[in-house]
Computed example of a mutant assay.
Amino acid sequence: MTHSSPWQQRLATGTEDIQDEVIGWYQRTPRGKAYVPDMIWGTLQTEAYATVILRRVVDFLEVPDDVPAGVTKRMERQQVLYDGEHHYDVVLGEQGLYTNVGGPEVMVGQIERLLREIDLPSLTLGILPATAEVGIVPMSGFNMYGGDRVNYELVSSSVEITDPAELALHHKAFDALSRAASYGDDAKHLLGKALSFWSTPGSPLDDIRRRAD
């Protein structure tokens, strides 16, 4: 079964309520998986990065502006990484390390956090290199909550999939992405390259910094 919910309907009261809902999903999911091709997984976002993301959501969808409250809830949900009761397998696309969210300062803080957290017992974090050959066609990012639900965040709506046959295909797809991803020291190397990119003055970063000022 597939169910679609328009974002403007779900965010009719702002971002806080839906972030509270997501906290419940994570707390009820001892094991989860996520594939995020072009940004940072929400449960590893810094406060600064999350603030930029939720500000863009509010402005784009023209929903009530409660960004600080929504960010507070997003930070609260991250406690699942430290409670010893959860584990998440996450594959980030290398592109997500270079997608400009908030400018160099925000990106440096975000990548530094990934480097700090990559060895958490609750986390298996892979980086999918931009040039990696993957045995499936390119696809949108998705979250898998346990073995019974997959969620997509599209431009206008959130899509939830619960059909067993479709779930099995998503597990197969995640396995293919995981096989192509880099882990451990190789992943840290990719993170280090991105950190150097955002930390080192020079083109094209000078233009990015000037626009951010």
Rank of each mutant, 00 (worst) to 15 (best):
M1I: 04
P6R: 03
W7D: 05
Q8M: 10
Q9R: 08
Q9N: 07
R10K: 12
A12R: 14
E16S: 10
I18H: 15
V22F: 15
W25K: 03
W25Q: 07
W25G: 01
Y26W: 15
Q27G: 06
T29A: 00
P30W: 00
R31L: 04
G32D: 12
G32Q: 07
K33Q: 14
A34I: 03
A34S: 12
A34H: 11
Y35T: 00
Y35F: 14
V36P: 09
P37Y: 01
G42N: 11
T43S: 15
Q45M: 10
Q45G: 13
T46S: 05
E47L: 06
A50R: 05
A50E: 08
T51A: 12
R55L: 03
R56L: 09
R56W: 14
V57E: 09
F60K: 11
F60W: 15
V63A: 02
P64D: 02
P64S: 00
P68D: 02
V71I: 03
R74N: 14
R74Q: 15
M75S: 06
Q79D: 15
V80T: 15
V80Q: 13
L81G: 12
Y82R: 15
H87A: 08
Y88T: 15
D89F: 06
D89S: 12
V90C: 07
G96F: 03
L97V: 07
Y98F: 12
T99N: 08
V101N: 02
V101R: 02
G109D: 07
Q110T: 04
R113S: 07
R113C: 06
R113D: 06
L114E: 03
L115I: 10
R116T: 14
I118L: 05
T124V: 10
T124C: 12
L125N: 13
P129F: 00
T131V: 09
T131L: 14
T131M: 13
E133L: 06
G135C: 04
I136F: 10
I136V: 13
I136N: 11
V137R: 15
P138Q: 04
G146Q: 01
G146V: 01
D148E: 11
R149G: 02
R149N: 04
N151M: 13
Y152M: 02
Y152A: 01
Y152P: 04
S156Y: 10
E160V: 04
E160S: 08
T162H: 09
D163S: 11
E166L: 06
E166T: 09
L167T: 02
L169H: 12
A173N: 09
D175T: 03
D175L: 00
A180K: 03
A181N: 09
D185N: 04
A187W: 07
K188Y: 08
H189Q: 13
H189T: 12
L191V: 09
G192N: 13
S196M: 08
F197E: 08
W198F: 01
S199K: 03
T200A: 01
G202R: 00
L205H: 00
